[in-house]
Amino acid sequence: GTEDLKEEAKKALKKGDKERAKRALKKAGLSEDQIKKFIKEVL
């Protein structure tokens, strides 16, 4: 589900894998702006 994808994105970001995080967030249905915001909040 969406929460799982967001968790996956957080883990990817902590490993420095932004591309993987972006893919997971796109799958979760987030827009580009939401993805940028999510990444900023996590990092």
Rank of each mutant, 00 (worst) to 15 (best):
L25G: 00
D4G: 11
D17S: 03
L13P: 01
D33A: 11
K15N: 14
V42I: 12
L13T: 02
E7I: 09
K27F: 05
L5S: 04
E8S: 06
K10F: 06
L5Q: 05
I35D: 02
E41Y: 07
I35N: 01
K40S: 14
L30G: 00
K18P: 13
T2I: 14
G16I: 01
D4Q: 13
K26M: 09
K37P: 00
R20Q: 11
K37R: 12
E41W: 08
G29E: 02
K37S: 14
K36R: 13
E8G: 03
K14S: 10
K27V: 07
G1D: 13
R23M: 06
S31I: 02
K14C: 11
D17Q: 08
A28E: 03
K14Q: 13
A24N: 06
K36M: 11
K15W: 07
I39K: 00
K22R: 13
A21P: 00
T2C: 09
K14W: 08
A28D: 03
E3Q: 11
A21Q: 00
R23I: 14
A21G: 03
I39T: 02
K36P: 06
D33R: 09
T2V: 15
G16D: 04
K15M: 15
S31Y: 02
L25M: 03
I39P: 03
K15R: 12
E32N: 09
V42E: 08
K40Q: 15
E19K: 07
K26W: 04
A9Q: 01
K37Q: 15
L30R: 00
K22P: 00
G1F: 14
K6F: 15
S31K: 04
E8L: 12
S31F: 02
E3P: 08
K22Y: 14
D4E: 14
E8I: 12
G1M: 13
T2L: 14
L13Q: 01
S31G: 05
A12I: 04
L30P: 00
K27Q: 12
Q34Y: 05
E32W: 10
I35V: 05
K18N: 12
E7C: 07
R20T: 14
D4M: 12
K11T: 11
D17V: 02
K36I: 14
E19S: 08
D17M: 06
E41K: 09
K40M: 14
V42D: 03
R20M: 12
E3R: 09
D17E: 08
K36D: 15
K15P: 01
L43G: 06
L5D: 04
A28Y: 05
E32Y: 08
S31R: 04
L5P: 06
K26E: 14
L43A: 07
L5K: 04
K14A: 14
L30C: 05
L43C: 12
A24L: 15
T2A: 13
K26H: 10
L30T: 00
K27P: 00
K36L: 13
F38I: 10
S31W: 01
V42P: 01
E3D: 13
G16N: 06
K18F: 15
S31E: 05
E7H: 08
L43V: 06
E8V: 09
K15Q: 14
E41I: 09
K11D: 12
G16A: 03
A12Q: 06
K36V: 12
A28L: 13
K6Y: 15
K6S: 04
K27L: 13
G29C: 02
K11L: 10
K6P: 03
E19R: 07
A12W: 13
E41S: 10
K10A: 08
F38T: 04
K36F: 07
A24V: 13
G29P: 00
K37F: 06
Q34H: 04
K6N: 04
I39E: 05
E7Q: 09
A28H: 03
G1E: 13
E41V: 06
K18S: 12
R20S: 14
L13A: 03
E3V: 11
T2Q: 11
F38C: 05
A28N: 02
T2N: 12
A24Q: 08
G29D: 02
A28T: 03
E8W: 07
K22A: 11
K6V: 14
G1L: 14
I35E: 02
L25I: 01
L25Q: 00
E7L: 11
D33T: 08
F38V: 07
L30W: 11
K27G: 06
E8H: 05
G1N: 14
E8F: 10
E3T: 11
K11F: 03
K11I: 13
A9W: 03
D17F: 07
R20E: 13
K37I: 14
D17K: 04
